[in-house]
Design a protein around this nucleic acid. Structure first.
Length: 750
RNA sequence: UGGGGUAUCGCCAAGCGGUAAGGCAACGGUUUUUGGUACCGUUAUUCGGGGGUUCGAAUCCCUCUACCCCAUCCA
């Protein structure tokens, strides 16, 4: 945690905790139980439960079950299961928004009573029309006029089921002209005569997300309500509801992060459902799906998923993570965990003509670099199988395995060489007749024969036949739109692969590395001892020399795209006059003049400052940069300093009393405390140091402390000059005159 | 078109005015009875473009561009 930089959410949590805003951090994972969780949920789970864990708080699991027509208990189970599988524990019981229906209803009544909510009886179509568009303000429905009493009565009748669906809704009274569409009197409740999987038939009205979510968070004492980016616009209602109800603090705040996207797959509920319903995949737990159930059945471990989530980070930029990152996570996890075992996927018979005996060879389950114990016996006889791809009739450069001219080692056993290639009528190789070298046995090889490779094999009489399911990415395109982008070869089933017997009889694990092939998982559903089935989790990484096809992604030189500049809004006549005055009379550069002239507030501030000190350029610079920044956040009246004070600050710079760097610091101080600039400079002793006699020793010290960088600098890394200047300035607490420091540093290093 | 967001290497992602972190991918090399692993090394003179401020800008200001979200009685 120490050296790893924190994500923006953790930073917010930390700040809030340090500021004493909350006693303890409380997060929540709030899915709607209307679909199976996928790896995107895993990211959210990792964030919410992870933050709670990191800061010794807790995280609730809450089913956001406000829409009875789409939700079901089977999803609740799947969601609970996913959280547990990932190794997290929710605080106390599973929560349900439906448990808060009575409280929510009471809050709604509260809102009606203070005149902030009303029953609207406009039909859906008309309501949409009244809402306006993104560029046009909406109009409020005539029903917004209803009295509190009438609203109360109507709402109660709604609740009691006295109306048809769609007849009335409860709306918040906010602002039909809000630029944020979500704020145009959002719906709070709608009538639904539906059976709720938990609340039964008790309710005829159900709260909408925007009303239920913030209040549920509040009810549970959630402090940080973390959701995905598409809810950014909903944050305003979130705050409105909590603020309008004047709830007792502390209250939760919403923060948004980018949802997970992975290339070559789909994540949306709709698309996933389509795949399942059209039977393109075999159910929600199809190993090709990014669902938790699918990943799990594929053989992914919880640790690997968590590591993956950790590696991709949390940010606000929409992004598309490369599946290779996920594949790395599972390889990395399994590498140190699972036994290595030999499996031949495409068997090719090899008869060792000079071997008549039989024996059992002891072999470790783990390679030398995995510190785990365990061995098994490998039967060996004159008839074995190797993989078809491990034999080639031609000895080509870069091919390390068996050929008529090239011997190969049977891993853990002997070196063999090919004496005869047996073919069928079609010319297909169906058998190899080989000879072995008795003195080449693994462990005490005295043969002196050098081989380029050691391959996997199985003994023909004892090997078990297994079914192997080879999975590839479901889609052939990086950002699949729909089923037209499906990869036709996403599933390949091999029914007659052979595996060494210990895997079936000893069952040392459920996950294996089939040597030189990849990681495999005994399918938890279809596996039986009579009919063993293994899923390929992921292949081993292949170095480019083995791939040989080498798609060779030629790095396109990519000519720098020329960006076309859009049109700039022309200045008004007044602005133009101001601009001309600034550039001609006051000699401001056009950029600064432009910024000033186009902003009435800024130019007013500027002119006022100019009245007390006549330093047009200096003042213009600080006004267009620093003051402008503040004015973006605050009103002019909120500023703690006056134009005259800013002018004073600039005067000190002009008089070379302080450096521009210090001026920035003083400015920050002024905006915080409103103190006089002179006062700040005096009390903090910020007068700049220009005396070389003072600066030189500091430079020497910095140089002495950073011999490596001195060397680099002298070797030509001139940008290190900035580093040294920075160090010296830091040593003087920013007071060194940067110009002087720059000169002296260059001189000392030169 | 109004509002809300986002842009740093092929993919993620740190960075918050003073030397452009890290992971994945890729490419070399060493070790290896897995063409795996591990280890070592290489890969951004530059941060969406253009200006400005500053001794110094990915970071501050202006401006332009591209992409995402919002007009469900879904969440």
């Amino acid at each position: 945690m120490e050296n790893k930089s924190k994500d923006f959410l953790r930073r917010i949590v930390e700040e809030d905790l340090n500021a004493g805003k909350y006693k303890e951090v409380v997060t929540r994972f709030p899915p709607e139980p209307n679909g199976f969780p996928h790896i995107g949920h895993a990211k959210s789970i990792a964030i919410n439960f992870g933050i709670a864990k990191d800061y010794q708080g807790h995280c609730n699991l809450r089913m956001d079950d406000t829409n009875p027509t789409t939700e079901d208990t089977q999803y609740v189970e799947a969601l609970k299961d996913a959280v547990q599988w990932l190794g997290f524990e929710w605080d106390k019981n599973v929560r349900y928004t439906s448990d808060y229906f009575p409280k929510l209803y009471a809050y709604a009544i509260e809102l009606i009573k203070i005149g902030k909510a009303y029953v609207d009886s406009t039909n859906e179509e008309e309501m949409r029309e009244l809402r306006g568009t993104v560029t046009q303000a909406g109009r409020r429905s005539k029903y917004a006029q209803r009295s509190v009493e009438e609203n109360l009565e109507l709402f109660e009748k709604m609740k009691n089921g006295e109306f048809q669906e769609g007849e009335h809704v409860l709306r918040a009274k906010i602002d039909m002209a809000s630029p944020n569409m979500k704020m145009r009197d959002p719906l709070l409740y709608r009538i639904k005569h539906a059976y709720h999987f938990r609340a039964g038939d008790e309710w005829s009205v159900y709260p909408m997300y925007d009303f239920a979510h913030c209040l549920s968070d509040y009810i549970e004492g959630v402090t940080h309500s973390i959701c995905t980016l598409e809810f950014e616009n909903n944050r305003e209602i979130y705050d409105w509801v909590l603020d309008t109800l004047e709830l007792e603090p502390p209250r939760p705040y919403q923060h948004e992060f980018a949802r997970l996207n992975i290339n070559y797959t789909v994540m949306s509920k709709r698309k996933l459902l389509e795949l399942v319903e059209k039977k393109i995949v075999n159910g929600w737990d199809d190993p090709r799906l990014p669902t938790i159930a699918g990943l799990r059945r594929r053989g992914y471990t919880p640790e690997s998923i968590l590591n993956f989530c950790d590696a991709i980070g949390v940010a606000k930029a929409n992004s598309m993570v490369d599946v290779a990152q996920l594949e790395f996570a599972i390889r990395d996890d399994l590498n140190t965990k699972v036994p290595r075992v030999m499996c031949v996927m495409n068997p090719l018979k090899v008869t060792i003509t000079n071997y008549e005996d039989s024996e059992e060879i002891e072999a470790s389950y783990y390679p030398h670099d995995v510190p785990k114990e365990g061995t098994r016996k490998l039967p060996f006889s004159k008839e074995i199988y190797i993989d078809k791809s491990d034999f080639s009739q031609k000895t080509e450069k870069g091919y390390f395995r068996l050929t008529p001219e090239q011997p190969v080692r049977l891993k853990y056993a002997y070196i063999i060489s090919c004496n005869e290639v047996v073919k069928d009528d079609n010319g297909n190789v169906i058998e190899i007749k080989a000879e072995y070298y008795p003195d080449s046995k693994s462990g005490n090889d005295t043969s002196g024969i050098k081989v380029k490779s050691a391959i996997q094999w199985v003994e023909s009489n004892t090997a078990k036949q297994i079914e192997v399911r080879l999975y590839d990415r479901l889609f052939k395109t990086e950002a699949p739109e729909g089923i037209e982008d499906l990869n036709p070869n996403s599933l390949k089933i091999i029914k007659d692969a052979f595996i060494e017997p210990a895997v079936i009889s000893e069952k040392p694990d459920v996950r294996f590395q089939f040597e030189r092939e990849g990681y495999f998982y005994a399918d938890p559903v279809d596996y039986s001892d009579e009919n063993p089935v293994f899923n390929k989790i992921v292949g081993l990484k292949e170095s480019s020399s083995k791939k040989k096809k080498a798609p060779k992604k030629t790095a396109k030189p990519q000519p720098k795209k020329v960006q076309i500049d859009g049109e700039v809004v022309p200045m008004t006549v007044e602005e133009q006059a101001l601009f001309d005055n600034y550039t001609n009379e006051l000699k401001l550069n056009s950029e600064v003049a432009n910024t000033l002239a186009r902003d009435a507030q800024l130019s007013a501030f500027y002119q006022e400052a100019l009245e007390s000190v006549n330093s047009p350029v200096g003042i213009a610079n600080i006004v267009t940069n620093d003051v402008a920044r503040e004015l973006k956040q605050k009103e002019r009246s909120e500023l703690k300093y006056t134009p005259a004070q800013i002018a004073q600050l600039i005067k000190m710079v002009d008089d070379e009393l302080i450096s521009t760097k210090i001026a920035k610091q003083v400015f920050e101080e002024m905006s915080k405390s409103g103190e006089e600039p002179k006062q700040i400079v005096e009390s903090k002793g910020l007068v700049q140091i220009s005396d070389p006699a003072v600066i030189l020793p500091i430079i020497d010290e910095v140089i002495a402390k950073n011999p490596e960088n001195v060397e680099k600098f002298r070797a030509g890394n001139t940008k290190l000059l900035g580093f040294f200047v920075g160090q010296v300035l830091k040593a003087t607490k920013g007071k060194g005159n940067p110009k002087v420091v720059n000169e002296l540093v260059a001189q000392q290093l030169g």
